[in-house]
Design a protein around this nucleic acid. Structure first.
Lengths: 194, 194
DNA sequence: GAATAAATTCGATATATTTCTAATTAGATA
DNA sequence: TATCTAATTAGAAATATATCGAATTTATTC
């Protein structure tokens, strides 16, 4: 478990509109317009909140014709409840470690990326390398299918050696390739630093 | 359980600095300066965060000479974990009710207070009355001892009939009086609407 | 490929939040 | 009472967030 995940989860739940959305979805899937209607808000506002809810995996979606149905990921809530309840065991050592990990991670990212987001060089140390790639891969969209050319372009934003990095994306299971089409893997499959 | 409580708890935990403070306090009590030192932040910043942590009762304090030691209220964390884990039982009915309560509450407060925060009149319905008082009492400080005159002044900001309201404060256990000195009760003691 | 329906992005605005420095307050003690 | 220390408040700057209307994109269907 990473600190950021924890903090982002709480930040996401720390908004009344989003809790209302969760509350609606707890009764069953709905599409954006329906949510907007029930809450008396506009579609863009709902999109904004859904984006955050998706980012922390509190909701997922399934498309049917033109309509995207949102589903609540209730198991994540249960899981977070578990994390919270165990957070302070062993006098908060767990939490302390999470904080330290997070600071280390942040430092690595600051070291290897320039202020305008370029990758200075590819770390040789596995752990650092993975952290750096994880960071880069944030910019890709889940579920979207990419042409190889698109991936190259994407990587070139960060570093000229797109071929090496593209290969690393596959090796470390950030993405998979089929018939020359690339797609992001679910995070559970990614190689983990330590 | 109130929705606001829940949302405020998450909003509070949804900040890395505050999680770091919690993490420090999990290992034992500390005073403000020590926290500031360990986190590399200034005292006012710590005050700011402690204020929020106190608001949701995540920390409490004990004074020793000039130094205020902060303690983590770990049982609140356990309790919130429990709430979270049960939130979606019965298909989210619980959550739905919390949302509805909260909206009702909000409406009552909007109805009985003017935009600049004056109380239009004292509701006769018990439930509404208590909600209105709870709202007013937010402005008082926990642990602070008030002269009767101070309480009167405080209430007069909202409504001219300070005598009635002051009496209600006592009747409904928002405050207690000893030798003409008033002090806020812990929230657990307050009369509850419904 | 044109038309449709839903969702998203863009840009603007209003409000909140985090953090700081400087000034002030609160409480303890000499 | 004067003085010390720790904590808080006030005020400012930088950043983030929630919300909207208008414009655009996406996927479906005819």
């Amino acid at each position: 478990m990473q600190l950021n995940r924890l903090v982002e989860f709480y930040k996401t739940m720390g908004d009344p509109t989003r809790v209302r959305i969760v509350s609606l979805l707890a009764k069953g899937p709905l599409h954006g317009q329906a949510i907007a209607g029930k809450l008396g808000l506009t579609a863009p506002t709902i999109t904004h909140h859904l984006k955050k809810l998706r980012e922390v995996h509190l909701v997922y979606e399934r498309r049917d014709k033109n309509t995207i149905y949102l589903y609540l990921n209730s198991s994540l809530i249960k899981q977070q409840a578990e994390v919270l309840s165990q957070l302070l065991d062993k006098r908060g050592e767990e939490l302390e470690n999470m904080v330290e990990d997070s600071l280390e991670r942040q430092k690595i990212i600051e070291n290897f990326y320039t202020k305008d987001g370029k990758l200075k060089n590819i770390p040789s140390q596995r752990k650092k390398k993975l952290i750096v790639f994880e960071h880069m891969v944030q910019g890709l969209k889940k579920g979207k299918k990419y042409e190889e050319k698109e991936i190259n372009e994407f990587i070139k934003q960060f570093h000229e050696d797109y071929a090496t990095i593209r290969r690393e994306f596959i090796i470390n299971h950030y993405m998979y390739r089929e018939n020359g089409i690339y797609e992001l893997n679910p995070e559970e499959m990614w190689a983990k630093p330590e």
